[in-house]
Design a binder for these strands. Structure first.
Length: 426
RNA sequence: GGAGAGAUGGCUGAGUGGUCGAAAGCGCUCCCCUGCUAAGGGAGUAAGGGCUAAUACCCCUUCGAGGGUUCGAAUCCCUCUCUCUCCGCCA
C-alpha cells in the first residue's frame, strides 16, 4: 500500500509514477472526490463522538452529585442517531478509499527503466557463456522421459496437467539442490532457516499484496474460513513481521525457507504447457530481508548476489536483468530477475526474481521498527527473492549438463549431496 | 471429539456500568542523591488515526475479534477466534 498521506497530498505525482506501469489506470479525480467526502465526514464524526463523550461525562458527574439528569438526557436525545448516521457514512467512504488503496501498485523506484514489457528489460550483468554442446541439445522433457525419471503422464493421471512425477536420482537431485541452497544461505550468507505453514489465511495474503487483487492466482480450500495454499514462501515468512515492532538492533533480519509453492496459473493457458517450467506445484528456496528504510536498496543488491552464488556454484550461465516499469510486479518498487541459460530452449529463462517492496508490504502488515533516535515506531522495508527456484534449477542442470547419450553429469557442488554420484543415466 | 479455565499496556497483574487508556509491581528512559558498587528519591514511559506547515496543540479510536444493550461498556448480552488444563484419539 502506498502511504495514504502521500497519496492525498501528492496525488498527481503518485498518478504520474503509476502511469509508467503497464495496463494500469488510476482514476485520480474519483479518488480525490471520495477523499474530500472522507475528510468532511471524519471531522464531523469525530466532532460528534467528542460531544457524546463529554456529555456522557457530565451526566455521570451530575448523577453522582444526585442531580436530576433528565434535562441532560433530553439534550443528547438525537445525538446517538446523528452519530450513527455519520459513522455509517464515514465507514462507507473509508472502505471505498481502502479498496482503491489496496488496488494501487507500489510506486516505482526512479532507477526502474521505462518500458512496456519484457523486451524492454535492461540487462545488468552476464555470468558465464551460453553452454556450447557439440550435439543437438535435448530439452529437459526429452531427457527426463528417456531416463525414465520424469513422468508427466503419471502426474496427469493423478492430478491433471501442470504436475510432474520425478523418480530416482532425478528426484534426489532436486532434493540435493534444495540442500545446497539452504546450506549455502545459512552457512555462508548468514540466513536463519525457517519452517513455515504451507496453508495460510487471507490476512497473510493481504499483507504481502496477493489479496485482494490476485485471488485467481491462488488455490483456496473450502473451509468456512478458507485456507490458501502459499504461492511462495514469501507469504508466510514476510508475515513473521506482521504487527511487530522490532528494536533497532534486531534488524536486519535475513530468513531463508524452503517450501513447495502452489499457483493456479489462471490466465497462462498457452504458456509453457509442456514440461516442468510452469507447474501448479513446485519447490523453491526463498530469501527474505527485513531492514530499516534507508538500507533496502543496498539490501536488494546483496540479496540478488546471494541468489547468484547458487548458480555460480552450479556453474550455470545466467544473466541479471532489471525489470522495466511495464513488467515489474504489483508490490515491488524495483526488481531484478535472474535468468538461467537453457540449451533446450536456446534462451535465458527466469529462475529467480528479487524485489524490494520498500514499505509497501510493511504498511499493509504493520511491520515496524523502533527508531532509536526518536523512539517512535516506523515502517520497515521488506525484500524477497528466490534463491532459487528448485524445479527450474533442476531443469537448468539437466539441460546444461547433458551428454550426447542422454545421461546427465552431476555438478560438482551437488555430488556431496548425492552420495558422490557423478552421472545420472538410465 | 468431551469437560473446564482464560484472553487487559514491553512483562506480571488489578479492575463487574461513569471521574479508566486503564491501579500496582517489574522493566526501560531522564534527573537528583550517594567519592566506586549496592541501595535510595523524583519524573516520564502504548499503538493507530484526524486536523495541521508541524515529529506543536487539540480531537478520535483501540482492554482477543465482530455485533448488541445504554446518555455512557475493559466491565452487561450474543456470536466467533485463539490459548491453557484434564480425558480420548493420533504422525
Amino acid at each position: 500500500m502506498i502511504d495514504p498521506k502521500l497519496l492525498r497530498q501528492s496525488t498527481a505525482d503518485v498518478a504520474a509514477n503509476l502511469a509508467r506501469r503497464r495496463g494500469f489506470h488510476f482514476d485520480a479525480d474519483a479518488y480525490l472526490s471520495l477523499e474530500e467526502r472522507r475528510k468532511a465526514l471524519q471531522v464531523e464524526t469525530e466532532q460528534l463522538q467528542s460531544e457524546r463523550n463529554s456529555s456522557a461525562k457530565s451526566i455521570g458527574k451530575a448523577k453522582a452529585a444526585g442531580e436530576d439528569i433528565a434535562p441532560l438526557l433530553a439534550a443528547v436525545n438525537d445525538l446517538g442517531d446523528r452519530l450513527a448516521a455519520s459513522e455509517t457514512a464515514l465507514q462507507d467512504v473509508q472502505s471505498q478509499i481502502r479498496d482503491i488503496e489496496l488496488d494501487l501498485p507500489n510506486l516505482l523506484d526512479d532507477s526502474v527503466p521505462d518500458g512496456q514489457d519484457e523486451s524492454d528489460n535492461a540487462e545488468v550483468r552476464l555470468w558465464g557463456e551460453p553452454t556450447q554442446l557439440d550435439f543437438e541439445p535435448s530439452d529437459h522433457i526429452k531427457l527426463g522421459e528417456e531416463l525414465g525419471m520424469l513422468d508427466f503422464e503419471a502426474a496427469s493421471k493423478i492430478s491433471g496437467s501442470r504436475f510432474t512425477v520425478m523418480s530416482g536420482p532425478l528426484a534426489r537431485m532436486q532434493r540435493a539442490l534444495i540442500q545446497l541452497m539452504l546450506d549455502t544461505h545459512t552457512e555462508e550468507h548468514g540466513y536463519t532457516e525457517q519452517y513455515v505453514p504451507y496453508l495460510v489465511q487471507a490476512d497473510a495474503l493481504f499483507g504481502t499484496g496477493n489479496l485482494p487483487k490476485f485471488e485467481e492466482d491462488l488455490f483456496r480450500t473450502t473451509n468456512e474460513t478458507p485456507y490458501y495454499l502459499i504461492p511462495t514462501a514469501e507469504v508466510p515468512v514476510t508475515n513473521l513481521a506482521r504487527d511487530a515492532i522490532f528494536e533497532a538492533d534486531e534488524l536486519p533480519k535475513h530468513f531463508v525457507a524452503h517450501t513447495p509453492c502452489f499457483r493456479s496459473e489462471a490466465g497462462s493457458y498457452g504458456q509453457d504447457t509442456r514440461g516442468m517450467i510452469r507447474q501448479h506445484q513446485f519447490e523453491k528456496v526463498e530469501l527474505v530481508h527485513f531492514v530499516a528504510a534507508d538500507e533496502s536498496m543496498a539490501a536488494l543488491e546483496t540479496l540478488t548476489g546471494h541468489a547468484e552464488v547458487i548458480l555460480q556454484k552450479l556453474e550455470l550461465p545466467y544473466r541479471v536483468i532489471a525489470l522495466c516499469a511495464g513488467d515489474i510486479g504489483f508490490g515491488s518498487t524495483k526488481t531484478y530477475d535472474i535468468e538461467v541459460w537453457l540449451p533446450g530452449q536456446q534462451k535465458y529463462r527466469e529462475i529467480s526474481s528479487c524485489s524490494n517492496y520498500n514499505d509497501f508490504q510493511a504498511r499493509r502488515m504493520k511491520a515496524r521498527r523502533r527508531n532509536p533516535e526518536t523512539g517512535k515506531p516506523e515502517l520497515i522495508h521488506t525484500l524477497n527473492g528466490s534463491g532459487v527456484a528448485a524445479g527450474r534449477a533442476l531443469i537448468a542442470v539437466m539441460e546444461n549438463y547433458q551428454n550426447a547419450d542422454g545421461s546427465i553429469r552431476v555438478p560438482k557442488a551437488l555430488q556431496p549431496y548425492m552420495g558422490g554420484l557423478k552421472v545420472i543415466s538410465a
